[in-house]
Amino acid sequence: MHARAAAATTTALLGTSAFLLPISDASADVADERPSVIAHRGASAYAPENTLAAVDKAAELGIRWVENDVQRTKDGELVVIHDDNLKRTTDVEEIFPERAPWKVKDFTAAEIARLDAGSWFGPAYAGARVPTLEQYMDRVEGHHQKLLLEIKNPDLYPGIERQTLKVLSNEGWLDRQHVAGRLIVQSFSAASVRTVHDLKPAVKTGFLGTPSVAELAGYAAFTDQINPSYRSLSMGYVASVHAFTGPHGRPLEVFTWTLNDADTARRVAGYGVDGIITNTPDVVRDALSGA
């Protein structure tokens, strides 16, 4: 492991922001080219997904954008985790064997903070934790990165849109500079995306899915992006999305997910997408830059 990676991992395991690796201006310039490259759940091919270590790894690779997933604990804390249960990415079965099916919403933030969210990925990450949204935002801000935040399973968490926006506000992410180019809030739920737009119209939003072309005009009233799986994409569909103007007076964008190899990245980039969400952001970036 390189020294920078080791330091970043140590930082994540200790839960401190004492040693951060800001992305250089040169890296930021490369990463801001179109299509943007977004590290899915952080650089999740190289570090445990949705952990601070994955954010650190994305920064080490010079990746400007990171993506994460937000859910809510029993006592109302927002935490960064993809699944609605804790089984796949933590040792919850060992620590709380009697608490099946180990749903995030059935555990307090303090209980989740006890869990090991890194050992499943590899021994180097033993002791990594499920971060709170505040902890995650602090790390992203420390690296001067941009955030594509997914509100996960909003039907399980009434009011999570307003709560997420409150945390973002408290962390300083709803000021002009962040809203103008460093934050997008997305969801598979059109109702959730619409709620975010209604609550904070300045915030850029994305809908995860592939609406029909006939439905795009309706989506353009409240979302800035249509973000489909790369498997559902065509050049014609991307062009159709771009033909609509979103709520901020600009053409709708397309961020597609989740592709991890160079050939697919080059093919999908040829469709004219605006962003590619990937577990291997260095592979995709290098493929698009011709490296």
Score class of each variant (00 low, 15 high):
V193Y: 09
A190R: 13
G218M: 05
V241M: 13
T264R: 09
V193S: 06
Y219K: 02
D263V: 07
A214G: 12
A239W: 05
F222Q: 01
L233I: 03
D261R: 06
N227S: 14
D224W: 03
L199A: 11
S212V: 00
A265L: 04
D261C: 08
S189L: 07
T210W: 03
F255A: 09
D263L: 09
N227L: 05
D261I: 07
T256C: 15
V196D: 01
S240M: 06
R266S: 13
K200L: 12
A202R: 15
S234H: 09
A239E: 15
V193D: 04
Y230M: 09
T210P: 03
L252D: 00
P211H: 05
T210G: 07
F244M: 09
L216T: 01
V196C: 10
G209F: 00
S187P: 13
S229N: 13
T264H: 08
P201A: 01
F255N: 08
P247R: 00
M235R: 15
F207W: 08
R231C: 02
N260A: 07
V241E: 09
A202Y: 13
A243D: 14
D198G: 08
T210M: 14
F255G: 03
S187L: 13
V254T: 09
K200T: 10
R266P: 12
G249A: 06
L216K: 01
A265I: 03
T223K: 00
P211E: 05
M235K: 15
F222G: 00
E215W: 07
S187M: 10
